[in-house]
Design a protein around this nucleic acid. Structure first.
Lengths: 235, 235
DNA sequence: TGAATAGTGTCTGTTAGACATTATGCA
DNA sequence: TGCATAATGTCTAACAGACACTATTCA
């Protein structure tokens, strides 16, 4: 068996999500270079052995370049590889998902990008074709987001630091595509210890002011007890 | 910006699990070549652009080479990358997890392997040090296995095609590390539609013969309703 | 006929979901 | 003072967990 010299292009791509008016948005860039020049794509780039350490560091670097955000919620989703994905040859893309708080964000392109925009996600799609197999990547990221939303505090990372329970419920409702009972939601979220009250802080845009909450600082991800298939027995 | 020529080694490694006497086992190989010659490692190998299509096909090929099993349960777990993992330079490993039915398996090495063995998994560890960062990879695979076991039919893929509910419960119990109520387990598994009865087939090694079941053929993975954070409302 | 395991019936505490009710501030 | 939204209370059906009980085979 000969030691075959590999020629594989390794990239990190990130589906960067945020919420605007309770609508899920993903950050897309328009490619300025071949291949797929002019097409929209998930932001990403080639892994560079020199500046980058782990793959996660690569993702963080790309994220900071595009959004200026230093430490959002970041999670590896899945890796795609094959000979047909990129006309330049066999390629491997490590897909990450990032959740940004829905505050104002300054977007910044670079010389390999001719435009950059937030695009509304409808189901698991956007309104335009994507370069490479990025439609498939976006689908995978959406599925991960939805499935984790069902049993964890993930969605709170899409909201501002402080939020009302109604805002949180709206966000879950929009992303899961179901209407949620307000009283039940409140009870479950509070009982799970997902959030903590911000003492004396209220949101005033409704009639009665609403208590503001924030995620519990020590745990950035809370899972609900009721997921567990079986409770742990004593014996 | 200069188009830097990447020099990254891409491999696929697989944590192949099975059950023996209700104990979780993982398949390890002893390396016959440098680096880490003589050390034990998860089976895996370099992605070859020529014979392989997708990464999953690479994993299936390696699996068939080692175990002769054509189509076990296979799932991508996570990808590890960095400059420190492999002394040869920056490397990327795509980790898969495979579940094999606990029937007799003929193991076969190749010229890059000096030995191959099933090794008992205790918690998320084995009784010997592993090459590269494979201890971390094994840990990740074990965590995925345990977390999915809590709310899905995954564990059934570790059993023979036909099994009793007691055997299934034993397997879950061993892997989750908890004792499970027999009556409750039976009710949940049957109600979830996880298995179907094999009419007229019984296991006779106890006193009263036990009904044999098999996984529902159309769905190789069943999730329990009770995972869902909230039931879907009508409105 | 007793031992051992398979499988069923029943009770109970918890909790999610539905909905009614109260609280609060603003127009 | 009426209204809209926030927040709480109450009722009920579903169900997990515990455990008692029955069923079935073999030694």
């Amino acid at each position: 068996m000969t030691q075959h010299r590999q020629n594989i292009l390794v990239t990190v791509d990130t589906a960067i999500f945020t919420l605007q008016d309770s609508q899920l948005q993903v950050l897309l860039v328009q490619r300025a270079t071949e291949p797929f020049k002019g097409a929209w794509a998930l932001p990403g780039g080639v892994v560079q052995e020199e500046p980058d350490g782990s793959l996660e560091q690569t993702a963080f670097r790309k994220l900071a370049e595009k959004t200026g955000v230093a430490s959002p919620y970041l999670e590896q989703v899945m890796t795609f590889g094959g000979p047909e994905r990129d006309p330049r040859g066999y390629s491997v893309s490590v897909l990450y998902m990032a959740l940004l708080r829905s505050t104002e964000l300054v977007l910044q392109g670079d010389d390999r990008v001719s435009d950059i925009a937030w695009v509304r996600v409808d189901g698991e799609r956007v309104d335009r074709p994507l370069a490479f197999d990025h439609a498939k990547l976006l689908e995978a990221a959406c599925q991960r987001l939805r499935s984790k939303a069902q049993y964890s505090s993930l969605i709170a990372h899409l909201l501002p630091d402080e939020f009302t329970l109604s805002e949180l419920r709206e966000a879950y409702s929009s992303i899961l595509g179901v209407s949620l009972n307000a009283a039940g939601f409140r009870r479950r979220v509070l009982q799970a210890g997902l959030v903590e009250e911000v003492k004396g802080a209220f949101r005033h845009h409704g009639r009665r002011p609403a208590q503001l909450y924030r995620l519990h600082p020590e745990s950035n991800q809370v899972y609900f007890e009721t997921n567990l298939m079986w409770r742990v027995g004593e014996g």
